[in-house]
Write a protein that binds this DNA or RNA. Structure first.
Lengths: 138, 138
DNA sequence: CAGTATCCGTGTGGATACTG
DNA sequence: CAGTATCCACACGGATACTG
């Protein structure tokens, strides 16, 4: 695997020299934002919140995900301690994934963001339409 | 400007056919996640929460941001109705940016995520160390 | 000062083929 | 079944130069 295994903080904010802006917002926050902001992690977390699932089950449920990205995503979540991976020693292999208690609390926290979005989606859509119209007619 | 101006939902979930997984989590949520998950938006929002700022002021404060990305980021936030842009008709030009009421509520909502991260960062760091060690010694 | 325009390197993620 | 390995396309964002 060539990516995502040992991503170091890339911002200079984490070094002693040179943090001009509110650093505490970044660094640690950045890392979980990179997780929930990526294409699939949040979706996997949301699905596993309903109970444990097998690899193929996830793959079938998440429309459009590649085998590779499902693996990568699950590994990252496992590494962060958000998801637990259980291998059953049978043939053919059976692997179950479930949220850890930590993962459950993260999902709960993200819910407020989901709620915010649902509440304000119309407002945002209107704002975008207004903006685009203003730009187009100038 | 070649990017970010009219990004359409790319997921098939938003079409009538083919949504297998919990679609409501995506689509609308995806769009604000793309915003707060990107490299600079959250940082700009956090800074503007302390009061309005000028373009150059933001540029100086946010270490490492390019002129281009500051402009792009601000335009996106403006388009979403999260940031208000005020041009003062003077020479040299003076442009102020401030959070809209909507932007303020988003920032407030994100705070819970920041808090969660601060609370669990040690736990995550330990989990990663454990995982990496396990992978290395096999 | 506050942008825009252009060019270009890199990382993220998709497609495909192969395996214990 | 549950992965790995490899290759590749394209979007994101950085550097630089120019402008009302």
């Amino acid at each position: 695997m060539e990516e995502g295994t040992s991503k170091e903080p890339s911002h200079s904010c984490c070094t002693e020299e040179a943090f001009q802006w509110d650093t505490r917002e970044d660094c640690d926050v950045r890392q979980i934002l990179d997780r929930i902001g990526d294409k699939w992690s949040l979706l996997v977390i949301a699905l596993l919140d309903d109970g444990s699932m097998r690899f193929t089950e996830l793959k079938k449920t998440i429309d459009g995900i590649s085998q590779r990205m499902l693996t990568v995503t699950l590994r990252q979540l496992e590494r962060d301690g958000l998801v637990k991976r259980t291998v059953h020693p049978v043939v053919p292999p059976r692997v179950d994934y479930e949220l850890t208690p930590l993962g459950v609390t993260l999902h709960a926290t993200i819910q407020s963001l989901v709620t915010w979005t649902e509440t304000h989606q119309t407002e945002i859509a209107r704002s975008r339409a207004r903006y685009d119209a203003a730009v187009a007619s100038e």
